[in-house]
């Protein structure tokens, strides 16, 4: 196993777990969505890291012989970023709606109100 050769992946996993931790351990809904975004962009980084080729350049045709990085992960992540923002918008809209209904976006307080019913 090559330690330095996979440094990117290790950082990606650390970030992924940081985002996961924020989602699980923090009660504020907006903070949870930020955590979800961190998680999400770490996945993007994972894909883009896989697409990189040594000595490669951006996949745009240049004159002469050139090594290009793999364009396929770029396309997938391009799609994923846009979809990610759409889901973020939906999540935030849910948070606003919950604030209107409960007067708070703290998970614990919402559960307390539910128990009182």
């Amino acid at each position: 196993m090559d330690w330095i050769g996979q440094y990117n992946y290790y950082v990606v996993f650390f970030l992924m777990m940081t985002g996961f931790y924020v989602v699980v351990a923090r009660g504020n809904l907006v903070k949870k969505i930020v955590g979800l975004n961190i998680f999400q962009s770490s996945v993007f980084l994972l894909y883009i890291s896989m697409g990189k080729v040594d000595e490669g350049t951006a996949p745009i045709i240049v004159a002469g012989e050139a090594i290009y990085s793999n364009p396929l992960p770029h396309v997938l992540i391009l799609t994923a970023i846009v979809v990610g923002v759409a889901t973020t918008a939906l999540g935030l809209a849910l948070a606003v709606r919950i604030k209107e209904a409960y007067g708070t976006i703290e998970e614990d307080e919402i559960h307390e109100q539910d128990d009182d019913w």
């Binding site: 993007f44 883009i48 890291s49 697409g51 990189k52 490669g56 350049t57 951006a58 996949p59 745009i60 290009y68 990085s69 992960p73 770029h74 992540i77 391009l78 970023i81």
Partner: peptide, 8 residues
Amino acid sequence: IALDAVDV
């Protein structure tokens, strides 16, 4: 950008 994904 450093990883060659300019569009992304």
